[in-house]
Simulated scan of single mutants.
Amino acid sequence: MRIHLTDAGTISLVEPSNFRALDVLVDPQPEEQRLKALRRIGAPEGEGHVRLSPDVLRFLSGHAGEAEWEAGFAAMLAYAAKAGWVDEAGRVRAHLTFGEARGIVSSEDFRAAMRALPAGISAITAKGPKGDCGMIVSSLTSISAEPPMVGFFVHQSSSMVPVLREQDAFAANILGQEHRAVLRGFMLAEQGEARFAEGDWLREGEGPAQLADALARMECDIVHREQIGTHLLIVGRIRQSVSREASPIINFNAGTRVLAEVAAE
């Protein structure tokens, strides 16, 4: 099995049922970022090794509790202990493998490619310590129907990051053509109540504000957060949703667009 620490900040376990080998593949990245990633999974040891808790491997494997996998894993740990690779704390020693630098697209080319991708526009809202907060995203996406989950990305410098890290809920409000004023307010106004000057917003108790006539509005409980590159991924399980038929507003080529019907041939 191999833990992969990517230069985007993600951690995954490759071939979790391969009990004949254990190492950590580290993508090329700044030393500070590399050490931070290693400390997330264990204790760095010298320049070429890291001590891993078996519980970390179990968690990453996705097979914890499965009898056949646990038997193979126990045999691997027993072999490592016999070879002297397990310390008094029960942590197993893993070799670090450093990946080679790979070609990567420039930021300018990346942005140009993403501008060619049409995407719906949504207002994400949450209840902060000083009241309602909100932001505009074009990254809202469906993740799962069972259980029903959606997710979106927010830049690490956004004023919404502290709120989304501390709060346990958000609302996703999909905007339509009639919501240009709402969009403009969220883009230009200061964070807080000023962003909610336009639109008919529903507020119930301590829950996030919801746009009454949104194409769809979904109240979600946050179930996962993960830093990936420059952005924070937020995943929410949908508690309740309301939707209606209408025309959306679209983000395309760094501007807003509306859909036009194409006559059938």
Rank of each mutant, 00 (worst) to 15 (best):
A264Y: 05
A8M: 08
M149C: 01
P16I: 03
P28S: 07
R91Q: 14
G128Q: 04
S243H: 11
S159F: 05
F186D: 06
Q191M: 14
D55H: 08
H224K: 04
L35T: 10
S144Q: 14
A197P: 01
R237N: 14
G103S: 03
R91V: 02
G199T: 02
V14L: 08
Q210W: 04
A260T: 11
T141C: 13
V161Y: 02
F252L: 14
M149Q: 10
L25E: 00
P118K: 02
F186A: 15
A169E: 02
E219I: 14
G134V: 00
Q33T: 15
I124K: 11
I121K: 01
A126L: 07
A89W: 07
C220E: 01
I250N: 04
D221F: 09
E204K: 14
V92H: 04
A263S: 06
L52D: 07
P28W: 02
M76P: 08
V26W: 03
M218L: 10
T125S: 06
A197K: 06
Q227P: 09
S12E: 11
A119Y: 08
E100V: 02
R237P: 06
G236Q: 00
L140D: 09
V137N: 04
D168A: 10
K82C: 08
L202T: 12
T10A: 08
A246G: 15
V161L: 11
P148Q: 05
A145D: 13
R237L: 09
E245K: 13
F153N: 12
W85P: 05
V235A: 11
H231N: 13
E261A: 13
Q156S: 13
A145L: 07
S247W: 04
I174N: 04
R195D: 09
V242P: 03
A216W: 04
K127L: 15
A169N: 06
R257H: 11
P28E: 00
E68G: 07
E245S: 15
L183T: 00
G103Q: 00
A71K: 09
L188T: 06
L117P: 13
A171P: 05
T10R: 07
A21M: 08
D7V: 07
Q191Y: 02
D7A: 12
A83W: 00
R51I: 03
A216N: 05
A197D: 11
C220W: 00
A78R: 14
G205Y: 01
G128V: 12
D55K: 11
V26Q: 04
E100C: 08
P147Y: 05
A21F: 07
L35E: 12
R2N: 10
M76T: 06
L215N: 10
L175T: 05
G90I: 03
G120Q: 00
G99D: 03
L211C: 07
I238Q: 01
G99L: 01
A101F: 13
R195M: 11
R40V: 07
G65E: 04
T256A: 05
A246W: 00
P248E: 01
I250W: 15
M218S: 08
G99Q: 00
L232T: 06
R20H: 10
P28R: 01
P16C: 13
P148M: 12
A80C: 03
R58Q: 13
D23H: 14
Q156T: 12
K127H: 07
A126C: 11
E108D: 15
A78W: 00
N253Q: 14
V262M: 09
F170E: 14
D109Q: 12
Q191S: 15
D168N: 06
L259V: 02
P30H: 09
